[in-house]
Simulated scan of single mutants.
Amino acid sequence: MTSIWVGDRVRLRGGEPEEWQLAMEFDQDATVMRNADRLHPPRSKAGYRKWAEANAGTPDDDTFGVGIESLAEGRLVGGLSTNGVDKNAGVFSYGITIGADFQRRGYASEAIILLLRYMFGERRFQKCDVDIYAYNTASLKLHEKLGFIEEGRRRRSQFFAGGYHDVVLMGMTVEEYAHAHSLGSVESC
């Protein structure tokens, strides 16, 4: 049996409420937090538990968050969630976070490929847009390697760490994805 949610390195799966400590652990690294979104005020253990319980519910088919589990280590190493879903235009976006101790092992690239295969091949989306902070060169290189095209830049559009930062806009169409990766196939039983 094969699963669309399992690759060679990672499995995408729902988060469990008892995994709140992993989110708290990831939030201890300011760089990880900024690259994913922005710095948030400290949260209590009860706050992390409440957040984990609220996010462990049943997702809909297009807007959802999943945990990224390392197959080798059998533990959560990050998270991935869709956002900016526009069903009329067939466009979506996503955000991804990999814990600092698990970066540069291929987890992010494989998780993104699995997500795109689902959104393009199963949900009929025709384009994926991502926003990446210009200073995050590792993420820019990763997305370029996966086949995303730089489409523009929003100059000085975010403020943190005492300064203004540009956001690079990148996108990939379903045709570009299919050319670089597989949309999958239907296996006979």
Rank of each mutant, 00 (worst) to 15 (best):
M1E: 09
M1I: 05
T2V: 15
S3E: 12
W5I: 02
V6Q: 12
V6C: 02
G7D: 05
G7S: 04
D8I: 03
D8L: 12
D8K: 11
R9Y: 08
L12M: 05
L12W: 04
R13S: 05
G14Y: 01
P17A: 02
E18K: 12
A23D: 09
F26K: 03
F26L: 15
D29H: 10
V32Y: 03
N35A: 14
N35V: 09
A36F: 15
A36H: 15
D37M: 14
L39F: 07
L39A: 06
H40F: 12
H40D: 13
P41V: 01
P42N: 06
P42S: 11
S44T: 05
K45F: 10
A46I: 06
Y48V: 04
R49H: 04
K50N: 11
W51N: 01
W51L: 12
E53M: 10
N55C: 06
N55T: 10
P59I: 06
P59C: 02
D61V: 07
D62G: 01
D62S: 01
G65Q: 11
G65N: 04
G65H: 02
V66W: 14
E69S: 09
S70A: 08
L71P: 00
A72P: 09
A72L: 14
E73L: 10
G74E: 01
G74V: 14
G78L: 09
S81N: 07
S81M: 07
T82G: 03
T82A: 01
N83W: 11
N83L: 12
G84A: 14
K87Q: 00
K87V: 08
N88F: 14
G90C: 00
G90I: 13
V91Q: 08
V91F: 04
G95P: 04
G99L: 07
A100H: 13
D101S: 09
Q103I: 13
Q103E: 08
R105D: 00
R105H: 10
G106W: 02
Y107G: 02
S109L: 06
E110C: 08
E110Q: 00
A111L: 02
L114Q: 09
L114R: 13
L115A: 06
L115V: 01
L116G: 09
R117S: 00
Q126V: 15
D129Q: 14
Y133P: 03
A134V: 09
Y135R: 07
Y135G: 05
T137K: 07
T137P: 09
A138E: 02
A138N: 10
L140R: 13
E144G: 05
L146R: 15
G147S: 09
G147P: 11
F148L: 11
E150G: 01
E150A: 07
E151M: 14
G152W: 04
R154D: 11
R154K: 15
R156F: 12
Q158N: 03
F159E: 01
F160M: 00
A161V: 00
G162S: 01
Y164G: 01
H165L: 00
H165N: 00
D166T: 08
L169S: 15
L169A: 14
L169F: 06
M170G: 12
G171E: 06
G171I: 12
M172H: 09
V174K: 14
E175T: 04
E175W: 07
E175H: 03
E175C: 14
Y177M: 08
A178P: 00
H179Q: 15
S182W: 05
S182I: 01
S185M: 04
C189N: 14
